[in-house]
């Protein structure tokens, strides 16, 4: 589904403040997988996501989505940005925000509206369709952004620290929402986060990146019994072990070292 080979990105190459964000990163994500990418802050996670989304052209390496080389944004790809207040359009109603990307799809006005309604329903916001984003709480705005991505029916959804700007309770609700919608919509999800617990709780697989320049330092399969639950899953011995492993990797401590 997604193949990243030897990806390298350098900001301002040759200049005095040259910054090597990603160095020789290799990663492949299978169809239908929910992959969480964790790493210390400033490690180049966002650069990676922007490269996959075709928003920047990496200085080296290759990214393929469905076998096709990414040169511009693939048309089956959607992004949920961290900053919902800036990525939603404040002058459009919630329904218009969700429906706007569908102009690209071969759909008439009615079909677009229906698709938007359906997506809003799946994130529990059907009643808010005619409201404006500023009338909603932060968590609800991020739900709108998720609905917009869902309505687009992508085969790959990228999420860039999607729950970084909401409170703890809302964050748990949104995590469960992602788990729920992936069950309904068959798609691959790559979720970037700096929250170790979140990565283990949500992911099928967790990839840990090093400090910049980023490369993969750990790749762990999460085999937790489903369906996941905010209380019991987090008490599970495997969850505790995995979050410890991921935590050590993020901090740069050797996994083999005694706990």
């Amino acid at each position: 589904m997604l193949e990243i080979d030897n990806l390298t990105h350098v900001y301002g190459p040759g200049s005095a403040n040259e910054h090597r964000a990603i160095d020789g990163l290799k990663l492949s994500v299978a169809e239908g997988e929910l992959l969480c990418i964790v790493g210390p802050s400033g490690c180049g996670k966002s650069t990676l996501l922007r490269s996959i989304a075709g928003l920047i052209t990496p200085t080296g390496g290759e990214i393929r989505v469905d076998g096709k080389l990414v040169r511009q944004t693939p048309d089956n790809l959607a992004v949920v940005f961290q900053d919902y207040s800036r990525s939603l359009f404040p002058w459009m109603s919630v329904a218009d925000n969700v429906a706007l990307p569908l102009r690209r799809r071969d759909m008439d006005k009615r079909a677009r509206r229906e698709a938007a309604q359906e997506a809003l329903e799946s994130v529990g916001l059907l009643g808010a369709a005619e409201k404006y984003p500023f009338q909603l709480s932060g968590g609800m705005q991020q739900r709108v952004a998720i609905a917009r991505a869902l309505a687009y029916r992508p085969s790959l959804m990228l999420m860039d620290e999607p729950f970084g700007s909401v409170d703890a309770q809302t964050r748990e609700d949104l995590e469960d929402l992602v788990l729920k919608v992936r069950g309904h919509h068959r798609m691959t999800i790559v979720l970037i986060t700096h929250d170790i617990d979140e990565s283990v709780y949500v992911g099928d697989r967790v990839v840990v990146l090093s400090k910049a320049p980023a490369h993969v330092v750990g790749d762990l399969r999460v085999d937790l019994p489903g369906p996941r639950d905010q209380i019991t899953t987090r008490e599970h011995p495997d969850f505790v072990r995995l979050r410890g492993e991921v935590g050590r990797l993020v901090r740069g401590v050797d996994v083999a070292a005694p706990a």
Partner: peptide, 24 residues
């Protein structure tokens, strides 16, 4: 970020002008 959002979701140029740049 609003323009990047438009890019990601493939909003065509005309709509980008009338629905995003002008309102913004």
């Amino acid at each position: 970020l609003q323009l990047e959002t438009a890019t990601v979701f493939g909003v065509p140029a005309r709509l980008r002008l009338f629905r995003i740049i002008l309102p913004s």
